[in-house]
């Protein structure tokens, strides 16, 4: 009995350790590669370090600045689209019971469950016909299609947690629909909107195929800049680019936690 307990504990520890290593180890050579040009097998650490890759990144041919800017513009537009149509939809779905709700839910979440490449090819062809559409806007539309299900699911869940009770109380006190949303729901919604926005930006940043198809391969967001390098196997430059990619994500994560902290403190002060 004791022996089997012990061995199962060992198995657990081993599993956790393997998984941790599996997830964490790949980051290490990435950091190392970005600071060296030459790192022959079988050395665990390179002998010569250099900053060449980082310098190249921000040179004209490196296009890092352009890539970052494009990625941010698209992500920003995508986020606006999500906020505009995602929040009311989640609210409607969470607070109303009606016939056919499951079907509507299924349609809204469909891109999660069915590969969306075909629809984006179709969208691209349509966009060509309406060629007044800005490249950023049309790519943002494709990203909106990809991110909206995640955003709606996140916000919907929070609306369900909030429930209808507060709303009913406010309604009985004579508050209008708008006031209920601004005074009661919005403050409670902030954490999940932050989480949803974080997801939207991160997912938008990482899109390769939708961006390529929608822009015909011309809008150079970071993944489109990186891909040729990754394919050619220029390790050092790709490593630097990858780290460049993490920086905005880390930055966003920091902002997310900071905003969450400020928000919770504000709520606390209100209560106290």
């Amino acid at each position: 009995m004791v022996k089997s307990l012990k061995s199962s504990l060992v198995a657990k520890g081993l599993f956790i350790m393997m998984l941790t290593l599996f997830l964490f180890l790949p980051f290490i050579p990435l950091v190392i590669w970005s600071f060296t040009k030459q790192w022959p097998w079988p050395l665990l650490l390179p002998e010569k370090w250099s900053l060449d890759s980082w310098n190249y990144l921000f040179s004209v041919s490196g296009r890092a600045g352009e890539g970052l800017l494009n990625s941010w513009i698209v992500a920003f537009l995508t986020l606006i689209g999500n906020l505009l149509i995602g929040i009311p939809a989640s609210r409607g779905l969470a607070q109303n019971e009606f016939k056919g709700k499951r079907v509507i839910f299924a349609i809204l979440l469909a891109p999660l469950f069915i590969p969306y490449t075909v629809s984006i090819i179709g969208m691209h062809d349509l966009a060509i016909q309406f060629d007044f559409l800005n490249e950023y806007v049309s790519v943002a539309f494709a990203h909106l299609l990809v991110t909206l299900p995640y955003f709606i699911a996140t916000i919907w869940f929070q609306f369900r947690l909030i429930g209808n009770k507060l709303q009913e109380a406010a309604l009985s006190l004579g508050a209008s629909e708008w006031k209920i949303f601004i005074w009661i729901e919005a403050p409670l919604l902030i954490p999940s909107v932050l989480l949803g926005s974080f997801l939207v930006i991160v997912i938008s940043f990482s899109q390769y195929l939708p961006t390529w198809i929608m822009s015909g391969g011309t809008l150079q967001t970071i993944p489109l800049v990186i891909f040729p390098f990754a394919n050619s196997g220029n390790s050092s430059i790709v490593a630097a680019y990858s780290l460049l990619f993490f920086i905005p994500i880390l930055f966003l994560l920091l902002v997310y936690y900071l905003l969450l902290r400020i928000n919770s403190r504000k709520q606390f002060m209100k209560r106290g």
């Binding site: 891109p111 179709g122 299609l145």
Partner: peptide, 10 residues
């Protein structure tokens, strides 16, 4: 965009 895009692709 999702359904319409798919049908248009089709």
């Amino acid at each position: 965009f999702f359904l319409g895009g798919t049908l248009h692709s089709l």
